[in-house]
Design a protein around this nucleic acid. Structure first.
Length: 505
RNA sequence: GCCGCGAUAGCUCAAUGGUAGAGCAGUUGACUCUUAAUCAAUUGGUUGUAGGUUCAAGUCCUACUCGCGGCACCA
C-alpha cells in the first residue's frame, strides 16, 4: 500500500459541500463513533428480507443510503445493497427507547445522531419489519452503525447520472445511481456463468492458454507489444486463442473451450474495445454444421434461461416513448449461402456482371467503393453494407468465398467456397464457425500467403503440431461483449464493459 | 488518423454578443406513515484549457484537452 500522490487538498480549498461532510467526521468521533467502522456481521440481503418478509421480525441489514426524508420527529429513507432497495424508518422511540420497558422515556440523542447521516453513507441497521400505510415493506430501526462515511455527494437520485464520461470513469457512481446499469452487469455475469455451465454439461473442458505469445497468431489484427525482462524477449498480447486450442486437439483433448480476454491494437468504436472477451470452442470429429447447431442452441438457451425471453428489445429508444423494436431469436435459424444473400441484395445477375459492372452497381446501391479494391472485396463490401448491416433476426451465412476465410476447409463440391458459417444478428457478426483446416501442408501454404514477407511471424511450432495429426474438428468463436450487447439490448460495447478504455484525464 | 457534434453549480439542464439562472442535492427552520415528502428561507460558478475579436464573450474566431457519433483500421 503506497501513500499515493493524491493526498486530499487542504480544508480551505474544499468546496463548502465537501467541508461540511468532513466536519461531520469530527462530530461522529466526538461521540465515540469511528466513521469508517468495523465489520457488521449477521446481515440479511434486501432481496431475502423482501422474499421472507414477516412483520415484527428482527433483521440486520447493511447498505448505502440513497434517500433520506427527515420529518422532524421521524425519518424515512432508503438504502441500497447489492440485491435492491429497502425503506427504513426511525423515530425517537424506535431508536432511543427501551424495548424491555416501553414506559421509560426515550433517549432523543440517538435520533439526533441518526439525523447526521448523509446520502451516500454506508450504514448497518438493526430493526423490526413492518408495512407502512401505503403498503411498503420497511425496517423500523432500533440500532444503527455508521460503517463508512461518504465524503462526497451522490449524483442526483432522480435524474441519475447521464454524462457518459463520468459514467465510465467513475463506474461506481453509475452503478450506485443507475439501476439498469447494475442489471446489465448482473446479466453479463450470469450469461458468462451460464455459458460455462452449458459447455461443461456437454463434456467440454475449459482451458487456459498463453495470453503473452512470441507470435500473435490466429487472426489478422495488430497486436499489443510487451517485453519480458529476464528472457529479454519481445512478447505480444494474444489476438486469438485459436492456434493453442488446436494444439490441444492434437494432444487428444476432444472438446475444449477458452473464455477470456483477447487484445487487438485497433481503433475504438461502439462495437470495439481493445481488450474484449471471447470464447472459442473446438470439438473433434465435428464440422461447421454441427457447430452452427451448437451456437444456435447455446444462444437460445441463454436468452431463455438468463433473459427469460426470445424477444429482445433492440435499436435506439424512441423519443416519443413508444416501445423499442424487438428481434426474435426463435429457432430454427435460417441458413443462407453467401452468393444467394448477395444476389438478393444486389440483383440476381450480380455474379454475371463484369468486375467494372459490379463496381457501378455497388455505387448505384449506395455502397462506397474505394479505388483499388479487388473484385471479391467489392462483393464483400456489398455484403457487409446491404446484408450484414441490415440483418435483424439471426441468419447463418454459409459457403463464403475462400479468399475471405483462409483458415477453413474448402468445400468438397465447390472448392471456391469454404465450409464455414457466419452468424449474423442485429447487424453484427456474432459468431464465425469453421470446419477447421487440419491438412498441415495446406495450412502452411495458407499461413505463408498470409504472413507474406514476414516469415518470422510464421508459427512453426503450430505447424509442427499439425504435422503430428489434428483430428477433423469444428470450431467457433463468440464475441462475449457483443453477445451481451445483443441479449441486454445495449447500444454500445462500453455499456457492457465495466471499465472500457478511455484516454487518461 | 480524418470529419462532425458536445463540455455551464455536486447531479440534470436553461441563458438574441449586454446583470450567469432553475430543479434536485446541500445548509437553517417547521413537521411522528414519508417515498421525486411538503412548506419557508438560504449557500453554491475561473461557463473544459489557453489565446484572440469586441465598448462588452457562456455565446463569435483559433488552437488544445476530454467525451460522443461516423469514417478509416479491424479475415
Amino acid at each position: 500500500m503506497s501513500i499515493g500522490p493524491t493526498l486530499p487538498p487542504p480544508m480551505e480549498e474544499l468546496s463548502e459541500l465537501l467541508q461540511l461532510r468532513r466536519a461531520k467526521l469530527d462530530a461522529w468521533r466526538s461521540e465515540g463513533t469511528d466513521p469508517f467502522g468495523s465489520s457488521f456481521p449477521g446481515t440479511t440481503s434486501v432481496a431475502s428480507v423482501i422474499a421472507d418478509f414477516a412483520e415484527e421480525k428482527t433483521v440486520r441489514v447493511a447498505g448505502r443510503i440513497v434517500a433520506f426524508r427527515d420529518m422532524g420527529k421521524s425519518i424515512f429513507g432508503h438504502f441500497l445493497d447489492q440485491t435492491g432497495r429497502l425503506q427504513f424508518y426511525a423515530n425517537k422511540q424506535s431508536l432511543g427507547g427501551n424495548a424491555a420497558d416501553p414506559t421509560q422515556p426515550a433517549d432523543p440523542s440517538k435520533l439526533e445522531s441518526f439525523r447526521r447521516l448523509d446520502l451516500g453513507d454506508i450504514v448497518g441497521l438493526e430493526g423490526t419489519l413492518f408495512i407502512t400505510k401505503t403498503g411498503e415493506k420497511t425496517v423500523k430501526v432500533t440500532k444503527f452503525a455508521l460503517l463508512s462515511k461518504s465524503l462526497r455527494p451522490l449524483p442526483s437520485a432522480w435524474h441519475g447520472l447521464s454524462d457518459d464520461e463520468t459514467r465510465y470513469r467513475q463506474r461506481y457512481l453509475d452503478l450506485i445511481v443507475n439501476e439498469e446499469v447494475r442489471r446489465t452487469f448482473v446479466l453479463r455475469s450470469r450469461i458468462v456463468s451460464e455459458i460455462r455451465r452449458y459447455l461443461e454439461g456437454r463434456g467440454f473442458l475449459e482451458v487456459e492458454t498463453p495470453m503473452m505469445q512470441a507470435i500473435a497468431g490466429g487472426a489478422a489484427a495488430q497486436p499489443f507489444v510487451t517485453h519480458h525482462k529476464a528472457l529479454n524477449l519481445q512478447l505480444f498480447l494474444r489476438i486469438a486463442t485459436e492456434l493453442y486450442l488446436k494444439r490441444l486437439l492434437v494432444g487428444g483433448f476432444e472438446k475444449v473451450f477458452e473464455l477470456n480476454r483477447n487484445f487487438r491494437n485497433e481503433g475504438l468504436s461502439r462495437k470495439h474495445n481493445p481488450e474484449f472477451t471471447a470464447i472459442e470452442v473446438y470439438q473433434a470429429y465435428a464440422d461447421y454444421e454441427v457447430m452452427a447447431s451448437f451456437v444456435e442452441g447455446l444462444i437460445i438457451h441463454l436468452a431463455q434461461n438468463v433473459i427469460g425471453t426470445l424477444q429482445i428489445p433492440t435499436g435506439p429508444v424512441p423519443e416519443d416513448g413508444s416501445p423499442r423494436k424487438t428481434l426474435d431469436l426463435t429457432g430454427p435459424w435460417p441458413r443462407k449461402r453467401y452468393r444467394d444473400a448477395v444476389k438478393e441484395a444486389a440483383g440476381a445477375d450480380w455474379f454475371d456482371l463484369a468486375p467494372e459492372g459490379r463496381k457501378a452497381r455497388a455505387a448505384e446501391l449506395g455502397v462506397e467503393i474505394i479505388p483499388g479494391l479487388l473484385d471479391h472485396e467489392v462483393t464483400n463490401h456489398v455484403f457487409e453494407k446491404l446484408v450484414e448491416a441490415k440483418t435483424v433476426n439471426p441468419v447463418f451465412i454459409t459457403h463464403l468465398p475462400k479468399e475471405l476465410v483462409p483458415l477453413a476447409k474448402q468445400n468438397s463440391e465447390d472448392p471456391s467456397v469454404v465450409d464455414v458459417f457466419e452468424l449474423l444478428i442485429n447487424g453484427q457478426e456474432i459468431s464465425p464457425g469453421y470446419s477447421e483446416l487440419n491438412d498441415p501442408l495446406v495450412q502452411r501454404q495458407r499461413l505463408e500467403e498470409q504472413v507474406g514477407e514476414e516469415v518470422h511471424n510464421l508459427d512453426e511450432d503450430f505447424l509442427l503440431a499439425l504435422e503430428h495429426g489434428m483430428p477433423p474438428a469444428g470450431g467457433i468463436g463468440i464475441g462475449i461483449d457483443r453477445l451481451v450487447m445483443l441479449l441486454t439490448g445495449a447500444e454500445s460495447i462500453r455499456d457492457v464493459i465495466l471499465f472500457p478504455l478511455l484516454r487518461p484525464r
